[in-house]
């Protein structure tokens, strides 16, 4: 566990050595506020909830998370430091987990920056805490799934830009399959399946305040799947073709 912490601390330091962390936090908080008031129509609806925030969260994270994950392994590969890391007496999952936790903490910090909204809404009206807690939990898990996808993609290339674009495409695809625009094209049975696979369609009910354990489990399993895939991507580096 001490190695996971060492990797995590180093990664966090790396985020804050560069402008990535600040840019991410600023853009994330700014965009969340903007969509909450302007797109979510908080004042127009006159209901004390955070629907505007949670409706925007899946798309917002699709766009911003790849920026956090693109360098995770691609940069190690490019600098050659991956050879230093992989010849330390550490297991691959410790490295993957350390990097994942660092990126997750940054994402959590971004979500934490939206907490003033919660305070404001609670002060303005009668805010039901259940859906709020559930919404944040779901956002953390969905973000975690995206981060895991991003890390996996980063472990397959030494090109950061490519890692960014691929992660964006995969996350967007997972979001897109569940949208009405896409799922609506298919017969009802198929559409239902697609909606269950889509990361955004599941989030819609969460945004309305209905948090289903199945949704959380789905996000968590996506996360675990891609973290395991990252471990295998690292192992594959020992056996180049």
């Amino acid at each position: 566990m001490s190695r996971v912490r060492a990797v995590m601390t180093r990664e966090l330091g790396e985020y804050f050595h560069s402008p990535i962390a600040y840019a991410f936090l600023l853009v994330f908080a700014g965009a969340a506020m903007f969509t909450f008031f302007n797109v979510g129509g908080f004042f127009a609806r006159g209901i004390a909830d955070l629907r505007g925030l949670f409706e925007a969260a899946p798309v917002l994270m699709v766009l911003l998370v790849p920026a956090l994950t693109m360098r995770l392994w691609a940069e190690e590969e490019k600098q050659g430091t991956i050879e230093v890391l992989l010849t330390l007496p550490a297991r691959e999952h410790e490295l993957v987990l350390g990097k994942f936790l660092a990126s997750w903490i940054l994402l959590a910090a971004g979500l934490a920056l939206t907490l003033p909204l919660v305070v404001t809404v609670a002060w303005l009206g009668d805010l039901d805490p259940g859906p709020v807690i559930g919404g944040y939990l779901a956002a953390l898990l969905l973000g975690g799934a995206y981060l895991a996808i991003g890390q996996f993609v980063s472990a397959t290339t030494e090109n950061q830009i490519l890692a960014f674009i691929l992660a964006l495409v995969v996350c967007l695809a997972l979001y897109g399959v569940g949208t009405e625009t896409f799922a609506g094209l298919f017969p009802d049975r198929t559409a239902a399946v697609l909606r269950r696979l889509g990361t955004g369609s599941r989030f819609a009910s969460i945004a309305r305040g209905v948090v289903d354990l199945a949704d959380l489990a789905y996000y968590a399993s996506l996360m675990v799947f891609f973290l395991v895939a990252s471990v295998f991507a690292l192992r594959a580096k020992r056996m180049p073709e």
């Binding site: 190695r3 060492a6 180093r10 330091g13 790396e14 560069s18 050659g80 430091t81 050879e83 330390l88």
Partner: peptide, 24 residues
Amino acid sequence: PENAPLYPDMLAGEYLGFMARMRG
């Protein structure tokens, strides 16, 4: 490794600290 790959943004002392922690 060849060319002594290192993390350019880290301080030299931080790097040694990191390597030490990875070695337990």
